[in-house]
Design a protein around this nucleic acid. Structure first.
Lengths: 121, 121
DNA sequence: CGTGAACTCGACAACACGTAGTACTACATT
DNA sequence: AATGTAGTACTACGTGTTGTCGAGTTCACG
């Protein structure tokens, strides 16, 4: 095991819920937000626990329950996945170039801007 | 199933070999290039077959043997992985910005350049 | 303090991958 | 024709990850 490995289906759904809220949530609360799947409460707890073990979540006590919150923002996670993909190649610049070409117009603009701001430091 | 599934360890090694050569290779040839791992010939064949099934390789007959070659360049693959990661977020611009910030200096330069060239079209 | 909500543990099924054996087929050589 | 050789296809098994829970354990709160 190494790197930010991709999450499973349910794991991702749960991370999405946590990412969408800005307050730490209990297992029960998460469960309510995913009610359509009709999962056993323990299923949610287990996944929450695994995500914590993997470092995706942090938890703190709240009475007898745990409150979970993302360890990093979704954007940070996504950016990390992107960097990880980039590491897969021997020729990073070629991959970067390709990526730049694949990014759509408006998004290229965003990238350009972010890079420009970077420059003034 | 959707998207560019991540490859396993051996699968990636084999893709790397294929990507490194510009000519289609037979299973035996691939095996020779990965001799240090001392795999059974059938193991290489199996993986080659799975990669083909997954769409990473294309194969054509050559006598009684198959010749395998990458369906896409490594850079294209990496770029696609990056785009896929980007799709995981709701706020693409935030993720892009973060990514831009995370990219190291020289690489930021490459990105900038690629984006600039894009502009003149 | 007793009680039950919330937790921890362990399990099992399904699936992906690494790994490889066996059986079948086609060609060449004797 | 018989045999060896090389390549393929099919099947299989072990392990690790994820989805999914049930069974016990514990501890905060009434």
């Amino acid at each position: 095991m190494e790197g930010v490995k991709g999450l499973g289906e349910l794991e991702r759904s749960i991370m999405d819920i946590l990412w969408a809220h800005n307050t730490p949530m209990t297992a029960r609360e998460v469960g309510r937000h995913i009610a359509d799947r009709d999962l056993a409460p323990t299923t949610v707890m287990t996944v929450l626990d695994r995500l914590t073990r993997k470092g995706f979540l942090a938890r703190t006590r709240d009475g007898r329950a745990w409150r979970y919150q993302p360890a990093a923002s979704r954007d940070a996670y996504v950016a990390e996945l992107m960097l990880e993909a980039l590491d897969l190649t021997g020729d990073r610049s070629a991959a970067l170039t390709r990526f730049a070409q694949a990014v759509s117009g408006p998004e290229a603009e965003i990238l350009r801007k972010a890079l420009t701001e970077l420059e003034d430091e």
